[in-house]
Amino acid sequence: MIQLNKVYKTFNNHKALNNLCLDVKSGEIYGLLGANGAGKSTTLNLILGFLKPDTGSIDLIDASNTSIATDMIGYIPENVNLYPYLSGVENLDYFCKLSGFKYSKNELSKFLIECGLQDDAHHKSVAEYSKGMRQKVGIAIAYAKKAKVYLLDEPASGLDPLSSNELSELLKKLADTGSAILMASHDLFRVRETCNKIGILKNGNLIKEMDADQVTPEELEGVYLNFMKN
């Protein structure tokens, strides 16, 4: 579903991405690992359309082999900063309206519940939310948009283990509905637990791709450290 073909991107003579080829299929959760500055955020920004590749192409193609518009993308940043003066439901309502969807209050609540946010929190001001709760609203925003592609930037950073686990479960649920999910992270354990496929980026090069179920967490750590050190 997400296809990057021979993508090059440079910033002031610095190669951020070098001939990157990536393919995330429908129903797949792809974990992109890499150190700071490896090119993970650049990859996400290219798919989001905030950056244009120097060469190469980025395609979002659905199961019937037709291109889908970028408005089918859901994006969940590292910190989902919502409007603190609005409640969870109001935030969701506002972001949905921006993307052209108008839902009833019940429907909005349903989305939030499906994304794991407890009923009693829906009408509380977001200023009172924890990071995990905001993250859930962020996912609900993408979900309500009926996104086919989810891009997540360090989604588990700063989350407690329980919230982190809930996030994994939620993403798996979304993947089961046929969405393609690309998740950039440092967290080897979470990526191993959540993703089907794992790629390791180093200096803009995708140096290793593997299926998550083929490696144990310890093996993944060994592979990762090995690549980073060399």
Binding site: F50, D71, Y75, P77, E78, N81, Y83, F95, L98, S99
Partner: peptide, 13 residues
């Protein structure tokens, strides 16, 4: 600065 702008843009604004 809060990164909300990206979210707004992705939502279509």
């Amino acid at each position: 600065d809060t990164g909300r702008l990206k979210l707004l843009l992705i939502q279509g604004a």
